[in-house]
Design a protein around this nucleic acid. Sequence first.
DNA 1: ACTGGAAATGAACGATCGTTCAAGTTATAT
DNA 2: ATATAACTTGAACGATCGTTCATTTCCAGT
Lengths: 194, 194
Amino acid sequence: MSKKPKFDRDQVVANATNLYWEKGYHATSMRSLQDAIDMRPGSIYAEFGSKDGVFKASLEHYARLSIMQLHGIREASDSPLSALKTFVKQAVIDTQTAAPSCMCMLAKTVSELTEEQHDLLSVAKQALKSVENRFVALISEAQQAGEVGQDKNASELARFLQIQITGLRMYAKTSDENVPLEKMIDDLFNHYPF
Amino acid sequence: MSKKPKFDRDQVVANATNLYWEKGYHATSMRSLQDAIDMRPGSIYAEFGSKDGVFKASLEHYARLSIMQLHGIREASDSPLSALKTFVKQAVIDTQTAAPSCMCMLAKTVSELTEEQHDLLSVAKQALKSVENRFVALISEAQQAGEVGQDKNASELARFLQIQITGLRMYAKTSDENVPLEKMIDDLFNHYPF
DNA sequence: ACTGGAAATGAACGATCGTTCAAGTTATAT
DNA sequence: ATATAACTTGAACGATCGTTCATTTCCAGT
């Protein structure tokens, strides 16, 4: 009995993500969200419960996308280290022209929110941590393949990468001139601490 | 004739800055601003014109503070390079416990705003650029003092510093565990590219 | 003391916010 | 065909948004 929802949840969350990613949490209104995902308030609240519910679903969707992207690159790549480098270049360079925002949505969220939105902040933090954990796995793999010295600490290198990605994306948004991002990323992997 | 304004503009802007710094642009309401600076709407609009006007004044105040802080540290320091390091440590570590937000207000603003708020975004970007220019000056001074190799490019090093500061502050906010920030900053100045 | 005018006040405006819910629609099971 | 329950709809709610402005307060100059 009954009828099935006619909307495509994945597509809806993807559209919501793009809007939230561009505008941020506070600047996104339920009204603009309704337009972006083509749903009426009642349906949205039945499915997601609240504006926060949609945002949480978006954060999780974004994190899933990021990790899938990293896995995809790894499989298409001949080495774990070059996969990492490709991922960094995509995150820093490709998003400049082909994304709702050149910032990482998770980092942007952590930057925007305070403890007033503790739950959402927590989701964003944990998502960033889980991406970092994938970095650790790839770096360990690189160590076993001899691409990275065994004396290095994989966790520290992963942390280093997160800091560089965030810093570079922020700097790219700050700067209007053309910054040699590609060269800077190459340098990351060619010098200390790699 | 007439009477003089009874509020202390500097104090008012300082209070507004603290609120905006903590909450960000969109999450700060004129109502909470009125409380924070203890002014009524009419007086605020007479003095600043709009919510954006107060925010602009706050961004400029924050930038001025940052540069004054850097100068202060330089004068109290025996070398340009150690002044830089002290500044980075204050920005990254001390703000964790004693500031409205552990993020840089300018970076946070660049992260939050879109071209929809072009003017404010532009003010934040230029302020960050002017801080970076002070870094260039200090690094050049360090080169003349023999603290940094003459073969290095001062502009590139300044850019590097901006990226590290932003990345570290973001990472510190992301991470709940204790991150060895001090050691990481020491490493910055002890290894490539310095 | 008086007064002109700048400064401060806070009620109020229309717009928009996140959210609710009664009514309407539709697909399925009988 | 009909009944039922799931899903959709959009008007409407009270709260709050950024902003305005008629009014009141207060001080400087005479």
